[in-house]
Design a protein around this nucleic acid. Structure first.
Length: 423
RNA sequence: GGAGAGAUGGCAGAGUGGUCGAUUGCGGCAGUCUUGAAAACUGUUGAGUGUAACAGCUCCGGGGGUUCGAAUCCCUCUCUCUCCGCCA
């Protein structure tokens, strides 16, 4: 959520930045500013009347103590008019506040100056590329066939016990999952992130904190009986650890990592794009989150991008880094880098990480603040990145490393898997 | 699932209708003292909104109500703790 002061004081700048996104926000923002003016005016009127009411009440208290019943009664008379008019103002105020809040929720984050203009994924900017595209043998097949052939993942069995999008990993397929999770967590620990194991179900307030609610509730599984949501990413519990927190400057940076399964209802998209591991309702991911001083957050974003980059290099996967354009960037983000690995049998790039700086957008909702040197309380910056999401990494490992005799496991994983090949 | 107790400032813990935005202790910060530190002493120390700065206003788990006036009374929701039951 954008800060109302920013809209009030730097409207033109905000509108200019937002112009990189799809959608028009001028009218909404004008509307917000208008409502805000009314809201503040109403607040002032109300405050003045409440001050008067408080003054009279204190007077009555004194009169009662002095036993001056008659004057006390007279004073009471004076309050009745104030009471009804303050009530009216209160109602008006809460209605204005509500309207303003709803409108503010509907404005996405302002893109950073590096964000390219553009409507869709085609307008994203490639900023880095690494590794050669592998040339596969003539009988090479996509990962879902490999998964079947080597008994690594059983999609049909998943359908039986849960439904489409819930694969059952088996044998070396399951062990490869576990190996990757351990590898990612170890790398994050080495980079100074605190390892955590957060809850996989979160409450409504947490959903609001990171921006999944109120707009995107359809993407989350919702347990209505207890009003809990299955997390679509560890970003939600990890970032919400710092909801309603006032940090000290020396606490920065806060670096946390965690492995969790992720649950997504993902209404939409069918056909070839969703075959095999490309799109799932449940998948595993190691997330890295940082909470940082506003002056340093872009430096930190670069460091996080570098961290993810090294993971893919160590896994020997060909990949590219895309700077998302305004039209493709998430609602809450100010700058996002997507990592895509090349899946050689499918002959396409698969997104395996999204690493973003949210600036104060999440912090504003989370009330995640810090006290600066002058004792002023300010919003912190939040960042997060997948490091990494497993399924598509596995798809690429299986496809890219297949030979007529089996699949080679990247060397860095040998210590984790305990095996070097899948035959 | 059943029964009971509770929710107050960073923490502990008072406060049962009228200078309570909140006694006190601890912690934090500043100062005195000290070569320095500790101890002791003195002062200061919640958040939001608002203002040029004051003032004012709001906040004692959330929401609602009673009253001229509520941290204090009533209703309701949520959460926590204790005991019993069940259970990895």
């Amino acid at each position: 959520m954008l800060e109302i002061q920013v809209l009030r004081e730097r409207k033109d700048e905000v509108l200019k930045k937002l112009s990189k996104r799809n959608g028009l926000y001028t009218e909404t923002i004008n509307n917000i500013i208008d409502i805000d003016a009314q809201r503040r005016k109403t607040q002032n009127e109300l405050d003045a009347q409440l001050a008067e009411l408080n003054r009279i009440s204190k007077e009555i208290g004194k009169l009662m103590q002095q036993g001056n019943k008659a004057e006390a009664e007279a004073a009471k008379e004076k309050t009745s008019l104030l009471k009804s008019s303050t009530q009216e103002l209160k109602d008006k105020l809460s209605s204005l506040e509500h309207q303003q809040q709803q409108l503010l929720y509907s404005i996405p984050n302002t893109p950073h100056e590096l964000v390219p203009q553009g409507k869709s994924a085609e307008d994203n900017q490639e900023v880095y590329k690494h590794g050669a595209i592998p040339v596969l043998h003539k009988d090479a097949v996509p990962h879902w066939e490999l998964a079947h052939k080597y008994n690594l993942i059983d999609f049909e069995l998943g359908v039986k016990i849960s439904g489409a999008g819930f694969p059952v990993y088996r044998n070396k397929g399951a062990k490869l999952q576990r190996a990757l999770i351990n590898f990612f967590l170890d790398e994050a620990t080495r980079a100074g992130y605190e390892e955590t194991m957060p809850p996989h179900l979160v409450n409504e307030a947490s959903g609001y904190g990171t921006g999944q609610l109120p707009d995107k509730e359809g993407q989350m599984y919702h347990i209505t009986q207890d009003n809990l949501y299955l997390i679509p990413t560890a970003e939600v519990p990890l970032t919400n650890l710092y909801r309603d927190v006032v940090l000290k400057e020396e606490d920065f940076p806060i670096k946390i990592t965690g492995y969790t399964p992720c649950f997504r209802r993902e209404a939409g998209s069918y056909g070839k794009d969703v075959r095999g591991l490309n799109r799932l309702h449940q998948f595993d991911k190691v997330e890295i989150v940082q909470i940082e001083h506003p002056d340093k957050s872009y430096q930190t974003l670069d460091a996080m991008v570098e961290h993810v980059k090294q993971l893919l290099i160590k896994l020997e996967l060909p990949f590219r880094i895309m700077r998302l354009c305004g039209g493709d960037m998430g609602f809450t983000s100010a700058l996002t880098y997507d990592f895509e690995v090349f899946s050689a049998a499918q002959q396409k790039w698969l997104e395996v990480s999204s690493t973003s700086n949210f600036e104060t957008f999440q912090a504003n909702r989370l009330k995640l603040r810090y006290k600066d040197k002058d004792g002023k309380i300010k919003l912190a910056h939040t960042l997060n990145g997948s490091a990494l999401a497993l399924p598509r990494v596995i798809a690429a490992i299986l496809e890219n490393n297949q030979t007529p005799h089996g699949i080679n496991i990247p060397e860095i994983l040998h210590q984790y898997t305990g095996f070097k090949t899948i035959e």
